[in-house]
């Protein structure tokens, strides 16, 4: 088939091109620019090569923040994915209960992130907050503003409360799309409830779960607002995840060069993990 040549078509691409240029390419290139240079006042730049990258990669502060970040993301994924699937499995399949549950599940997702942080801050305050007061009344010595364990516990609990719904909604959609004949066939084959989950529901949910894990990984890995409002990264640096640490470096200390280098490293880590994970999950798909 011969292609029709019509160069005017480029005009239709221009708006998108401009939009992408201004919201992605130009800011990213600015960061790249900063990451290789040292800035002083009055817009004086000096070339530094890969110095900031080396500095960041060797910095203990960055290692610690990265470690905390992986731990946090690992923990919330380990809780939210199984919990989300479990809730989706117990949700009603028809009737008025469906809308009720769906609305209930959507609520946490609709709350602005800084409001979530503020809510949990007040909720967990040891003296006046419901959770804090309750835990102390029950005999636990709970104070998330001073004790590292408590700060982590509260941050994780908040994230689980805020985001498990997303996993629930995606899993529920995946479950609802399974044809009834699969369940009927399993019933006739004499499959146990566990076998139905293992051999029908889980494989059929694979795609939505891949999406859920990717989204939850990216969001939790880049989490900023909620822990910033809740703990401010403290006590000390205990809950200073990568983005909190990054903002401290860039805006608090005005170390633009190292902060830019850190941004890029941060960006590549997210990209790399997502790419590896996606390819692992989809490897079997392409074989079939």
């Amino acid at each position: 088939m011969n292609k029709t040549i019509n160069q005017k078509a480029w005009f239709f691409v221009i708006p998108v091109f401009i939009l992408v240029a201004f919201n992605a390419v130009v800011p990213l290139m600015t960061v790249v620019n900063y990451s290789f240079q040292e800035t002083f006042a009055n817009n004086v730049f000096t070339w530094e090569g890969t110095r900031w990258f080396k500095q960041i990669l060797r910095s203990e502060r960055f290692h610690a923040a990265l470690g905390r970040q992986f731990l946090f993301t690992g923990v919330i994924l380990a809780i939210q994915i199984p919990l989300g699937i479990a809730i989706a499995l117990t949700m009603p399949k028809k009737g008025i209960g469906v809308s009720f549950c769906l609305i209930l599940m959507s609520m946490p997702l609709l709350i602005p992130w800084n409001v979530v942080g503020a809510m949990w801050n007040i909720f967990a305050l040891p003296e006046i907050g419901f959770l804090g007061h309750l835990l102390n009344d029950m005999g636990f010595n709970y104070n998330f503003t001073q004790q590292i364990g408590d700060a982590w516990f509260t941050t994780i609990l908040m994230d689980v409360w805020h985001w498990t719904s997303l996993v629930v909604l995606l899993s529920y959609a995946g479950l609802r799309s399974i044809q009834p004949a699969y369940y009927q066939a399993a019933e006739i084959d004499g499959a146990s409830r566990w076998a139905v989950f293992r051999y029908i529901e889980l494989p059929k949910m694979k795609k939505v779960l891949t999406i859920a894990i990717l989204l939850r990984f990216m969001d939790s890995f880049m989490i900023y607002t909620e822990p910033f409002v809740l703990t401010g990264g403290g006590p000390g640096n205990a809950t200073a995840f990568l983005s909190i640490d990054l903002v401290k470096m860039a805006l608090g200390q005005f170390d633009l060069g190292p902060a830019a280098a850190m941004s890029l490293i941060y960006f590549f880590i997210v990209l790399l993990v997502c790419w590896v994970f996606y390819n692992l999950m989809m490897r079997n798909e392409s074989q079939t």
Partner: peptide, 28 residues
């Protein structure tokens, strides 16, 4: 259905995706 001991084949193929053909046949 298990107590009645019957077999049923559906309109579109119902297979267990993650199993091999052998495991599918062996499942019941």
């Amino acid at each position: 259905p298990v107590e009645r001991n019957i077999a049923q084949i559906f309109q579109f193929p119902v297979i267990y995706d993650t199993m091999t053909v052998y495991e599918n046949l062996a499942f019941p």
